[in-house]
């Protein structure tokens, strides 16, 4: 009797560990996408609803590089990042910059319209099917305690950590990153010291689309990819950014991880049908109760 209770408890612990681990890796993806939202928001005040589409483009461009161009994976990934980033830059140049009256509502319409357009083009280019992308280094499960994870999970966590470190370095130790923070804090004063604010806006789209694409690429081997994966991933990333108070630093990372873990626990312990609902419930709760984010003071720096 007592023995069976113990093993039951152990099993539950293993399960919790399992859910947490897989939640962490999905959460890392959300964090990357969320930081992309925040960087653009901080530099420009725009919520870029097309952010998810660059995540989608990352995965699908990787597919093209692998299948059509026959590149090895280590070459396909950077190629896909570059291609998606170019798409991000074109989007800023063609859709955002020419706006005569960049009021918030116009920008919302433009980014939503842009996202529908990009999705449509992707559907024409890659079709409606779901595609799979091979894992970076095999699919042999690795045991951690009583749980198992895939090598791809480790890739996701490692790449996310590296990107976050690079991001931190850029914003705090390079003149261009400091200029970006200056723009985020006070755009007019940034112009007055000679910072080309419009170039910084372009730059923020560059960084965000590159990060989004990278997120889309590293998650694709686990979840498959298709022309419409950007919608859900974009919304989850947005949710991470909202939890983090639109910070482009650790707060959004924590927001993403929290969301990933809660989703995974909710799906495992309650029902997988609720998985997506969890994100929206959190989103609404945060917006109603703590619009400055979970950790935010009313007007602290968001970088």
């Amino acid at each position: 009797m007592s023995l069976s209770l113990l093993s039951r408890g152990e099993m539950q612990f293993d399960q919790l560990l399992q859910y947490t681990l897989s939640g962490l890796s999905t959460g890392a993806i959300y964090a990357l996408i969320g930081i992309g939202f925040s960087i653009i928001y901080n530099a420009t005040g725009i919520i870029n609803f097309a952010q998810g589409e660059f995540v989608m483009l990352g995965g699908l461009f990787t597919l093209t590089c692998l299948d059509l161009l026959k590149l090895p994976i280590w070459a396909a990934v950077p190629c896909a990042v570059v291609a998606s980033t170019v798409a991000g830059l074109l989007f800023e140049r063609l859709a955002i910059r020419p706006l005569k009256a960049p009021t918030p509502i116009n920008l919302v319409i433009i980014t939503i319209g842009g996202s529908i357009l990009i999705r449509g083009l992707a559907m024409l280019a890659w079709g409606k099917d779901t595609h799979s992308i091979p894992s970076f280094s095999g699919d042999d499960p690795i045991a951690i305690g009583g749980a198992t994870i895939l090598p791809q999970h480790l890739w996701i966590l490692a790449i996310t950590v590296i990107i976050i470190i690079i991001n931190k370095y850029y914003f705090y130790y390079t003149i261009s990153g400091k200029a970006m923070r200056a723009c985020a804090y006070n755009r007019r004063a940034a112009g007055l010291v000679g910072i080309d604010v419009r170039r910084m806006v372009l730059f923020s789209f560059l960084i965000s689309s590159a990060m989004g694409a990278m997120a889309g690429i590293i998650v694709a081997p686990l979840t498959m990819t298709a022309y419409d994966v950007g919608v859900m991933l974009g919304l989850k990333g947005f949710c991470a950014a909202i939890i983090g108070g639109m910070s482009s630093g650790m707060a959004t990372v924590v927001g993403g991880l929290l969301l990933g873990i809660l989703e995974s626990l909710g799906a495992g312990l309650i029902s997988s049908g609720y998985k997506d609902a969890i994100a929206f419930i959190i989103l609404l709760l945060i917006l109603f109760i703590r619009p400055q984010g979970l950790f935010g003071k009313a007007d602290s720096e968001r970088v």
Partner: peptide, 13 residues
């Protein structure tokens, strides 16, 4: 160069 009204230094930096 302008020194703007209200200083407008980059406070978080």
């Amino acid at each position: 160069s302008q020194v703007p009204e209200g200083r407008q230094v980059f406070k978080p930096l």
